[in-house]
Computed example of a mutant assay.
Amino acid sequence: MRIRVTVAAVAGALALSALAVPAAQADGGVGDTTITKVVVDGDNKVSVGTSAAKTIKVSVTAQDDSGIAGADGFTLSGPDYGFFTTSKPTCTAVSSTTSTCTASVLVDPKVDYLSNANAGTWYVEAWIDAEDGDFVWQEKAGSFKFQRASQLTVNASPEPVYKGKTITATGKLSRANWETLKYAGYTNQPVKLQFRKAGTSTYTTVKTVYSDQYGNLKATVTASTDGYFRYSFAGTTTTPAVNATGDFVDVR
């Protein structure tokens, strides 16, 4: 505890002198404690919609020659003053020197007043204590994408269609608007129209189109054989990748 008070005092002194010197990343520690891995929600991507609450799981792996004693609640921070604090982590030993500390936080778009500007790259701040009194503190121990959930639709018509005739595939790309708690069109985004021949399992890209000002999509192709059409969006920093459910077209 004495060490923590000392670090806090130093941090306070640095804050007071912030106008005189450039700001520095708030990292610190004593001894040989290190953070070796940070995983958020399994793949370092968190997608939040407009209604359902989302539990974000954070796992931080650390090591010290004496073993890991515990961790403080992790802080998650991102654009536009985004900020969450997890529950008290539970640390499970992987070996005599290494433990993985896990905690979670519930994010509810209906009560947490998210702004659309909160979407983007977020960071995990972690403080890990070792059994011998050593510790490590990293302001940006790991990063993850905090994203506005996406939706994508497709409708290929006419059905059925004669071989050589034109098939028109319409659809819409939309994403969560956290400020209105509704989904809205995602404009001017490249979306691939893909086709999977009946009896196969692989989609191939036919062409790429851009969503219009309402998120709407439209593309035309020539009918050749039975199969499924879908739209596929690769995603952005603020919005996750998504595939539409394939729409079957019977070609005669």
Rank of each mutant, 00 (worst) to 15 (best):
T6M: 03
A9E: 02
L14I: 14
A15R: 14
A15F: 12
A18W: 09
V21W: 04
A26D: 13
G31P: 12
D32R: 14
T34P: 05
T34D: 15
I35L: 07
V39R: 14
K45N: 13
G49C: 11
S51C: 02
I56H: 10
K57P: 05
K57V: 15
K57G: 06
D64V: 01
D65Y: 04
D65V: 10
A69M: 11
G70T: 01
D72T: 05
L76P: 10
G82F: 07
K88H: 05
T98R: 11
T98P: 03
A103K: 00
V107E: 13
P109I: 04
N118G: 07
A119E: 13
A119S: 09
T121A: 06
T121N: 15
Y123V: 07
V124T: 03
A126H: 06
D129C: 00
G133L: 05
D134L: 00
F135C: 08
W137D: 12
E139A: 10
S143F: 09
F144A: 01
F144Q: 12
K145L: 11
F146C: 11
S150C: 03
T153D: 10
V154S: 13
N155Y: 01
A156K: 02
A156H: 01
S157Q: 12
P158D: 03
E159M: 02
Y162V: 07
K172T: 15
S174A: 13
E179C: 08
L181V: 04
G185R: 08
N188V: 02
N188F: 12
Q189W: 00
Q189L: 04
K192R: 15
F195L: 00
F195R: 03
R196E: 14
K197R: 13
S201Q: 07
Y203W: 06
T208L: 10
V209Q: 08
S211K: 03
S211A: 06
D212N: 14
L217H: 11
A219G: 08
T222R: 02
R230A: 09
S232E: 07
A234Q: 09
T236H: 04
T239L: 03
A241I: 08
V242I: 14
N243K: 12
G246R: 11
R252T: 02
